[in-house]
Amino acid sequence: MATKKVFLAGPFKSLVDEKTGLMSTYERGKLESLISFFENEGWLVHNAHKREGWGKDFMTPLQCTKIDFDEISTCDLFAAFPGSPASPGTHIEIGWASALKKKIVLFLEKDKDYAFLIQGLHAVADVEYISYKDTDDLLENIKNIFAAYKAESQ
């Protein structure tokens, strides 16, 4: 059986501290927790944050755009933090995933406001929303969704 691929997206440049050139420990921790979860389940994870050294090794716009589009085109699952406020790059990637008919999981932090097109995306695409309050809650919810997804694909 071929290895399943997940593309994990979320705000990036706006989360990089100008002084350190790196993402905060909290934001990085959320992504690392999800990366570890998927890898432990045997999935190959594509994540720009990790690829680009959590902010210290940003690629050029031409490089990252091509790589991200190609990776989304070949992924089995697209998962993202849309950002609140909205992350323009992540919203473009969500649009690509939707147009490419990918299974999409969106992580929405409780008590945050999200764009109407994110809230209504399930009307035109295969979207699962995960509402969470903290990283532990996020991981518990993704485990439940993932167990159901695994059962569907067997």
Rank of each mutant, 00 (worst) to 15 (best):
A99V: 09
S84W: 08
A148N: 12
C64V: 11
E93S: 06
K112I: 02
F69M: 15
G95K: 07
D126S: 15
L139K: 03
F78Q: 00
D113L: 10
L138E: 01
L117F: 13
F69N: 11
I104M: 06
A125C: 11
K112R: 15
A148G: 04
Q154I: 11
L100V: 10
Y114Q: 05
L62S: 15
Y132Q: 01
I118V: 12
I94H: 06
E140T: 08
L139Q: 04
M59D: 11
K101V: 09
Y114A: 02
Y149W: 13
I94L: 07
H91D: 02
S131Y: 14
G83H: 06
D76Y: 08
G55W: 04
A79L: 09
K56P: 01
S131I: 02
I130K: 05
I142Q: 04
D136E: 14
D113E: 13
I104D: 00
I130D: 06
Y132N: 02
H91E: 07
A80I: 06
E140W: 00
M59F: 15
P82I: 00
V127C: 12
Q119T: 01
K102S: 03
F107T: 01
P61N: 09
L121G: 03
D70R: 10
A147E: 13
T90E: 01
S153I: 14
R51K: 14
I72K: 02
D68Q: 13
D57M: 12
F58A: 07
F146K: 02
E140K: 08
L121P: 03
Q154P: 00
L77I: 14
D136N: 13
T90G: 03
Q63D: 15
M59E: 13
R51W: 10
Y129A: 07
D113K: 12
L108A: 07
K133H: 10
W96K: 04
L100A: 14
S87H: 03
C64H: 01
D137E: 09
Q63L: 13
P85W: 10
L77N: 12
F69E: 13
L62W: 12
I130L: 13
Y114N: 05
K56H: 08
T60C: 05
N144W: 00
L139A: 00
N144M: 05
E71N: 13
L62Q: 14
E71I: 03
Y132K: 02
W54D: 08
K110H: 07
D137G: 06
K101Y: 13
Y149I: 10
K103C: 00
L139V: 02
A115K: 05
P88Q: 04
L117W: 10
W54Y: 15
Y129S: 04
E109C: 05
A148D: 13
D113G: 01
F58R: 14
D57A: 14
K110Y: 05
D76S: 10
H91F: 04
E140H: 03
D134E: 11
T65V: 07
T60I: 04
L106S: 01
K66I: 12
M59H: 12
P85F: 11
I72G: 07
C75D: 07
T90H: 00
I72S: 04
D111P: 00
A151C: 01
E109L: 06
A99C: 09
K110Q: 14
S84G: 10
